[in-house]
Design a protein around this nucleic acid. Structure first.
Lengths: 351, 351
DNA sequence: TGTTAGCACTCAAACTCCCTGAGTGCTAAT
DNA sequence: ATTAGCACTCAGGGAGTTTGAGTGCTAACA
């Protein structure tokens, strides 16, 4: 496996990514920086094929990289260029668009920007809420026998839910219960808000608690919500405009995004590249996904991914991904110092 | 335009919907209930073509209905069968799935059920929130200089937003401001919560108000949210599995759903059928959309639509749509009597 | 020993040509 | 007014042919 063979493999990958057509020996030989004849290239390509890095769609066609070929290229050969300062600035602007760089909006913007820049689909999985603590619990009367429970976390997430009780509460009951909840839940980490814990809490209050059951249930549901990994998606359309991907597979994939969670949740550091055929659960033929992590307080609390054709300009995409994950890490940590600021909106209704 | 010609037009539409192939004179003549020869059918079809109700893809092919042909068929010829009781029961179950039939969930279920039953995409536009009144405004401290404003409407919608102030409020200030808001906003209809009204409110409080500006701004944003028509979509995938529709057009459409709002918002009664080529803003070739309204207190407060290929079994779909819009009308009015009950969840966060 | 020119070979894709059959419009008979 | 008959049209499909990019192999060369 000499220098030249690697160079030829790289050339095949890059040409194939560029044109989408199988690459022939002549095309490679003509490339600057190769400097050997087509015949020599042919010999090397035959060897690269034997090693499993290239393949031919049919006998009289050029070569195409295999998954191993892409892997070798990505891990050992390619050297992604550093982002120029002008580009960094541009990216920062994309993140900051329409508001301060915080929370939901930050993630939303990052996803959109990634999709836009790479012309692929982008996905961000945010599981930071489950690492935050309850900073406020409140019960608010909202009509006859209807009460809204409100949960605010140190991360700035706000969730609410309306619950219906059997009776109306007196002001005294309400404030007593509210205080009780505050005392026992504020400061508790979202992760610890389990079914058992809430059951204990209820038990401690005794029979009186029975009437409050729907509220306790509501809080439990809210915390379950918080513990779920929020997925933000953008640029699905790019998958459809992509010739290499089967439209039906893309539809299937989009309808089952949740399955991505286990892939995104996987812990690793740096950048990881997965191929559609690989992972079992992520199955769009000829596709690949590049994943990176962002952190808060040293802990990995979310992932960003770019999903596109396997025939992707990795050297261009990876720096973007790295920059964004670093940037998000910086932004959310910086805020972490201050108390939870931030805007947000909850929705809901019964007509 | 005699009886027989109408019968033949109906036969062409139905056969075409069934098979997707242009329909020839012989096929029609063989159909039960026609009872004339192929030659006669040919003469009639030639006339129907002259009138613009049928067309030929090419000289030696059968006939296909034009948009006018579909229109005539839908409006004058077809008689949709009434839903049998067993079917009504089945639909009711689909609506009731996983919970009481109220609010968001009701609409969510209706959309899913419609998409499922018709194998098309379904969309529901809900603009009822803007016709409800504010039943509760609350300001809740949520961290250093951070306050959450919470808005609850008579319709059961709950919205919240975190705002950052320049200073922390004393308890006294907080309750004073809270009371002031409650006094002036509770009972006000969402529709009336305009920029000017809020400005007046602020002005009345005087200079002291300056510090509260972000909170007032927050309330304004929440009310704007409420005034927007919520769109619920389901069954996009069915559009992709549909041979007649261009995948790229479908993608474009899905990415610009909001444009549907103006079509859905249009006021009319009963059922309306639009064709993709028609409306200008709704442009998937060979597609059609069937729209119906639901009401509350006699006022139209939302629309349901089914979007599919033009080659659609209208006689089957329309009864479903009618039933669902009636059912939703019944359910939300019935609850309307009672005070706003109901569950719901708001989301939000900054990482 | 590694590189190169030359040559015979392969094979997908594109093109042509032809046939088939469903469907038509027109005309003349009923 | 309806029908049978007939000549005509034309998309779609299959078979055969051509084209050209690309290959592997071999023999000559440095």
């Amino acid at each position: 496996m000499n220098e030249r063979k690697l160079k030829i493999l790289a050339a095949v990958v890059e040409e194939y990514v560029r044109t989408g057509e199988p690459v022939g020996s002549k095309a490679i030989a003509n490339l600057p920086g190769i400097g050997v004849s087509a015949a020599t290239v042919r010999n090397d390509m035959a060897m690269l094929e034997q090693l499993g890095f290239l393949e031919q769609p049919h006998t009289s066609a050029g070569r195409v990289p295999t998954i191993s070929g892409y892997r070798l290229y990505i891990e050992k050969i390619m050297t992604p260029p550093a982002l120029p300062d002008s580009e960094r600035e541009r990216l920062d602007n994309m993140l900051a668009e329409q508001g301060p760089m915080t929370g939901e909006l930050l993630i939303q913007n990052a996803t959109t920007a990634l999709a836009e820049l790479t012309q692929c689909a982008a996905v961000v999985s945010d599981f930071s809420p489950k690492f935050s603590v309850i900073s406020k619990v409140e019960v608010i009367p909202a009509g006859k026998r209807v009460y809204v429970v409100l949960l605010i976390t140190s991360g700035g997430a706000i969730k609410n839910k309306a619950c219906r009780l059997e009776f109306d509460l007196t002001n005294e009951q309400l404030s007593m219960f509210s205080d009780y909840l505050a005392k026992h839940l504020e400061g508790v980490s979202v992760e610890e808000l389990s079914e058992e814990r809430m059951a204990d809490l209820a038990a401690a209050m005794g029979a009186y608690m029975m009437t409050m059951a729907p509220l306790v249930q509501g809080i439990l549901e809210l915390s379950r919500d918080l513990q779920q990994h929020a997925l933000t998606f953008s640029g699905e359309k790019n998958l459809f405009s992509c010739e290499d991907l089967d439209k039906m597979e893309v539809v299937r994939f989009i309808e089952h995004k949740e399955e991505l969670i286990k892939l995104l949740d996987d812990s690793f550091s740096g950048i990881r590249v997965l191929f559609g055929e690989d992972g079992g659960s992520f199955v769009i033929g000829n596709s690949s996904m590049i994943v990176s992590k962002y952190r808060k307080g040293g802990k990995s609390v979310g992932s960003l991914g770019v999903i596109g054709p396997m025939r992707l300009d990795y050297a261009k995409v990876i720096p973007y991904l790295e920059y964004f994950s670093q940037k998000i890490t910086d932004l959310i940590s910086e805020e972490g110092e201050e108390p939870p600021p931030e805007e947000q909106t909850g929705e809901q209704g019964k007509g």
